[in-house]
């Protein structure tokens, strides 16, 4: 645990600056402000406890791994993911690539539609998209945070983007006017 002055100072330098990244991930995974705040608080407590095991390197990746695991504990506790329907890449990706009703959707979708579509994705897809597109993590860092092989990162991102395109098209159908 980070208790002495030196390690606390180290913690403040290496881990504390990534609070926004931690909150962003937690907010996208829990989809709720209050829960994201609780998760981030708890994740930071865990990070303090585990700080001895931080071996240097990317403090952001290290922290995001803890945030992600704390989120999943929370999701499990709150039954946000139906236990009867485990995540399946193939099924949840919604089939192979085809023609292009989605091309227009990407271009026409405003920010609000994009936020809504991303929020609708299965959590495993949301997670890789947030880590890659919003936080700019490399495949190697995503693999470490999400606990998946590096090769899986690319295929999951491929499916996640495909699925997001379809979701954008669906959201646009819901509100044909779109636009802020």
């Amino acid at each position: 645990m980070a208790t002495d002055r030196g390690s606390v100072a180290h913690f403040e330098r290496a881990i504390l600056p990534h609070l926004d990244a931690a909150y962003n991930l937690a907010r996208w995974l829990t989809r709720n402000d209050q829960d994201a705040q609780d998760v981030v608080q708890e994740a930071y407590l865990r990070a303090l406890q585990f700080f001895d095991s931080f071996s240097g390197g990317s403090g952001r990746g290290w922290l995001l791994t803890i945030v992600r695991n704390t989120c999943y504990t929370w999701l499990r506790k709150n039954r946000m993911q139906s236990a009867a329907e485990p995540f399946d890449e193939e099924i949840h990706s919604g089939g192979a690539a085809s023609g292009n009703p989605e091309t227009a959707a990407i271009e026409n979708a405003d920010r609000r539609v994009l936020l809504a579509a991303l929020g609708e994705l299965p959590v495993e897809f949301r997670e890789v998209l947030v880590l890659r597109e919003l936080e700019g993590l490399s495949y190697q860092e995503i693999a470490a945070v999400a606990g998946i092989p590096q090769g899986t990162v690319m295929s999951r991102l491929a499916r996640a983007r495909r699925r997001l395109e379809q979701q954008l098209a669906n959201e646009l159908k819901k509100e044909p006017q779109g636009g802020l």
Binding site: D20, Y23, N24, R27, Q37, V40, Y44, L114
Partner: peptide
């Protein structure tokens, strides 16, 4: 698209 940590969380942490 990114959420920023609210002040309350920052103070708590």
């Amino acid at each position: 698209l990114k959420f920023k940590a609210p002040e309350g969380v920052r103070r708590g942490v």
